[in-house]
Design a protein around this nucleic acid. Structure first.
Lengths: 205, 205
DNA sequence: CGCGTCCTTGAGTATCCTCAACTGCCGTGG
DNA sequence: CCACGGCAGTTGAGGATACTCAAGGACGCG
């Protein structure tokens, strides 16, 4: 179990529990979270000494760690494993580019609503078939982190959450806990769906 | 040689000449260019029937095309090739995430300056060792396309270019041709460099 | 109890967007 | 040959969204 910032140059890991954020930080303090890693996601950068991000635990995290070189050996020796890793990496590209659309072209309202839907989708247990009942979702991020993920300021995130609540889409039970009252309203607030929806949101890097 | 929009579901290609833009388009018309493909870059999405982007020629383009399945066969049968493709794909993730930082956290000025530097770097001939002389660079994009890549409006791009000219960093010879008078000024306008600079800008997807 | 962190809310503002007019260029066709 | 329309770009005026700054509340911890 690890909490805090990790260097992540000579090792890789699989997230077992919790959420890890990957971010880029400018010298002047501006920060952009570039990915959220949920259980099952891979953390690391094979075939390169430099790890080009800052990895930080967003919640308490359990990792399954291994050395970078041994992971590279695994990829070398097991074609099927390598194939799976390649497909995951291709998915990571798609996920990053989806987020580019959000960062570049969506309004603050749409950004926040999209984030809630994304967290809901990714933190759902794979097996649990949820009906249309109200879903409670636990935010793994602070307001500042949400802002850094969405390209907004924390005050803006706070205000948009309040407005989503006013619209009846959600209810803020608690700072970290949000009840999704009307998923369709939330989806509407998230803006028009991209024409080419990817099927499975799996495989972050 | 191909110009126009391509479906790109059952084939892949390598860009031989020209520039291809990959974009995501929302039903309401909002558009985000998610990658620019220069000569040597790969175009396609193996292991998936859906191609999740719109590919469009930004300039006249020469492609080396092959069927998706045959490319997948190549990956299957040639581990070294697969390795190279995997590393390129990993680089693509990094490139996309670098751009996320730009989209989420940079000002209009910084965005435009960064774009110019990026285009300069990517369109430089690999062999040509350029001294500190003034470099002329040819934009492969219209103002609208630059805006769609940067998450701005075309008017804003136009104004920022004028201001960069006023600052003495560049000179607009022509709508499409820009003379970089002072690369260090341009770099300054592009904002603080990211702490973890990747070494080679190669390998888009 | 006091302090620090996170969050909320308000007031004022700046950046970037919207709308609109105008220019230059180019290809078409009278 | 020149008029015309369309497209790309520039520029200006005005406005909206999101930011900045600031104050205050809630909560946890020493």
């Amino acid at each position: 179990m690890i909490a805090g910032v990790a260097a992540c140059e000579n090792w890789c890991a699989t997230v077992l529990e919790g959420v890890v954020k990957l971010s880029k930080i400018l010298p002047d303090g501006r920060q952009q979270i570039v990915a959220l890693l949920f259980p099952g996601d891979f953390l690391g950068r094979p075939f390169q000494a430099e790890f080009p991000y800052t990895a930080e635990a967003a919640t308490d995290v359990h990792l399954c760690c291994y050395s970078r070189t041994s992971f590279e050996g695994l990829l070398r020796d097991h074609p099927k494993f390598k194939q799976a890793f390649l497909e995951r990496t291709l998915d990571s590209v798609d996920v990053a580019r989806d987020w580019m659309l959000l960062l570049g072209r969506k309004t603050a309202r749409e950004k926040v609503a999209t984030l809630l839907l994304t967290i809901m989708a990714r933190s759902a247990k794979p097996g649990s078939e949820r009906g249309n009942v109200e879903t409670e979702l636990v935010l793994p991020l602070t307001r500042t982190e949400m802002a850094d993920y969405l390209g907004l300021r924390l005050e803006t995130v706070s205000r948009q959450l309040r407005q989503l609540e006013a619209s009846g889409a959600i209810r803020r039970c608690d700072v970290r806990r949000i009840l999704v009252l009307a998923e369709e309203k939330l989806a509407a607030a998230a803006g028009p769906p991209d024409g080419s929806e990817s099927l499975q949101p799996s495989g972050s890097l």
